[in-house]
Amino acid sequence: MSDEEKRVLLNNAWCRDADASFAFGYALRADKFGIVIEGKCAKCGCAIVRCSY
């Protein structure tokens, strides 16, 4: 995956409580549903998960 594709996916996921994106240390993986990004909010620390098909 290119850096540009990663940037688009990461910037398209937001914490519902803090209106912020992923903090450093997220996990990016492919599974049967597509690309999954799991991590924590950069502002409040809540869990964020994003799935892209």
Score class of each variant (00 low, 15 high):
16 R>T: 14
33 F>W: 05
14 W>S: 15
9 L>M: 06
48 I>A: 01
22 F>I: 00
7 R>T: 04
50 R>H: 09
16 R>G: 12
38 E>Q: 04
32 K>T: 09
26 Y>K: 15
15 C>W: 07
7 R>M: 05
12 N>W: 00
46 C>D: 01
50 R>G: 10
45 G>S: 15
3 D>W: 01
31 D>F: 00
42 A>R: 07
38 E>R: 03
19 D>V: 14
25 G>Y: 14
4 E>H: 06
3 D>R: 05
45 G>M: 05
25 G>C: 12
27 A>S: 14
12 N>T: 03
4 E>N: 03
39 G>A: 11
45 G>W: 05
41 C>M: 02
48 I>G: 02
40 K>N: 06
7 R>C: 02
41 C>Y: 04
10 L>Y: 01
35 I>M: 13
29 R>F: 10
27 A>N: 10
32 K>Q: 13
47 A>M: 11
17 D>I: 12
25 G>R: 02
32 K>D: 15
27 A>Q: 14
45 G>N: 13
49 V>C: 14
26 Y>W: 12
9 L>R: 01
4 E>T: 07
49 V>R: 02
31 D>R: 02
33 F>S: 10
22 F>H: 01
44 C>T: 13
24 F>S: 08
47 A>S: 12
28 L>M: 12
41 C>R: 00
21 S>H: 14
46 C>L: 08
44 C>W: 05
12 N>R: 06
26 Y>L: 09
21 S>K: 11
16 R>P: 03
33 F>Q: 11
20 A>Y: 04
